[in-house]
Design a protein around this nucleic acid. Structure first.
Lengths: 257, 257
DNA sequence: AGCCTGGATATGTCAAGACAAATATAGGTG
DNA sequence: CACCTATATTTGTCTTGACATATCCAGGCT
């Protein structure tokens, strides 16, 4: 028998959807999506099972079909559900791994329950090089803020973070950077990050990096260089990061559309 | 003056939307999204400019607002547009980098215009280990197909690819694997891959790997281990890949929701 | 000059309905 | 038994309409 352990149809979970709050500022589709997602992660909806169809759901919950569709789509985009026309919607197998989100390493560490610390190694105002000017869409030679930080978790160095920011951020609070992480500082200034484009690679650590990360000279490091844009489409940060590969990796979930 | 080169409002491009085909099997929202995207990549819509609002667009194109909204949302999800309530929709700065998609390295190389080749190094049927059984959701000890391949571009080795597939695929065509790439072979069998969960990291190359990739022993390699699920939520492949970091990297675009 | 308010603008959310297309199932036909 | 066909099921696409909410801007008041 080479049969896989695919679960067939399964009844839809009990009334875990009866506490929807229509007066809440949280959108209905989001409330429903949250409940579906938690039903999956809690295994109330077993892997491979088929969920109730859209029409039945919308009638049972007293919600229009477009709204229920949007809720389901949110969960599909997270890689927890798959849909097939004429068939239905099924739960994807495999345990749930947290997807890569628009957060800094700082946030990642906090989420993992570790105690992160940040040491500001250097802070300089330098004219934009050609590469920086293009990435940030600022004039060549204009002032840019260069930060170099060492991020540690429980006293163990995890990453060397180099960041370049345009002139609007020359006055960033040094003390805050020691305590809150760059992204939190930017958010508190009213900047809302919306899009990040990132390239992930690997190379040997430089001498500086290997000393900071307590690695042998030439040891492998995981690298990420990312450009982050705010909600008006302007570049707010160019990050060139260097991670200890034994302590950090990237999780990505892809959904074919 | 530290003013950035943000373009302000800009007129919407000329009638590049008048060739919509309502009888086409291609959905309307997709046709519109394609045209918006190409208007951005061709710089007909300059970076930082604001596009026409939804209502005006829907009236001008003779399309309902939900349809035009969906089209715009497609482009937002690719990281090319950002939206703000009360403000409008603007083009994100920075040149467009192709996003990471659900493709194999083979596809990536073909897209890059290089000539890829595949060498099948080994092909074995082995009982599933505990790790494999959990990742693929197959019974412990059940038959699994193990492949080891060397992927090269223009004669230069780029990656060592280890793949494990469940029993359904024990009879994969060996010849096809030499020519078409695993994903194409799976697709031609009727398998449609829908979700991929992937972890990207770095480490030193093993002796085997460094020989195959023509690297010094212990040189850094970029690694990816991914599980791919089909349109019924079943795991179809567990890939453990190892790339030459000077020839390969991962591009990821994140959009905050 | 500074602050508040109201209007204009644009996106966000939700509803109800209609038809299209893909898939599986059951039944009939050769 | 094999093949084809009709039908039920389910998701995919598109429309029209309504109201909510966030933001900017201009005008008026203090």
């Amino acid at each position: 028998m080479a049969e896989t352990t695919t679960a067939g149809d399964a009844p839809f979970p009990p009334e875990l959807f009866m506490d929807l709050d229509r007066s809440s500022p949280v959108p209905l589709y989001y409330q429903v999506a949250e409940r579906i997602e938690s039903a999956i992660t809690s295994h109330a909806l077993p892997a491979g099972s088929r969920i109730e169809n859209e029409i039945a759901l919308s009638e049972r919950l007293g919600i229009s079909r477009p709204t229920i569709r949007r809720a389901i789509q949110e969960v599909v985009d997270k890689g927890l559900l798959v849909r097939r026309r004429g068939i239905g919607t099924q739960v994807v197998q495999g345990q749930v791994t947290r997807g890569l989100e628009l957060t800094s390493l700082f946030d990642d560490l906090v989420r993992g329950g570790q105690v992160p610390t940040t040491e500001l190694l250097s802070r300089e105002t330098l004219p934009a090089s050609a590469a920086v000017a293009e990435a940030l869409a600022v004039p060549l030679g204009s002032d840019t803020l260069h930060l170099r930080r060492l991020r540690s978790a429980d006293g163990v160095p995890v990453a060397v973070l180099d960041n370049v920011l345009p002139a609007d951020y020359l006055d960033l609070d040094t003390a805050a950077l020691q305590s809150y992480g760059l992204y939190q500082v930017l958010r508190s200034r009213g900047t809302t990050m919306r899009v990040a484009r990132q390239r992930i690679g690997a190379r040997r650590a430089s001498t500086d990096e290997s000393e900071l990360l307590e690695l042998e000279d030439g040891a492998p490091v995981l690298t990420a260089s990312r450009t982050v844009f705010d909600d008006s489409g302007r570049a707010v940060e160019l990050g060139t990061h260097c991670y200890r590969p034994d302590l950090y990796s990237f999780d990505v979930t892809l959904v074919q559309k």
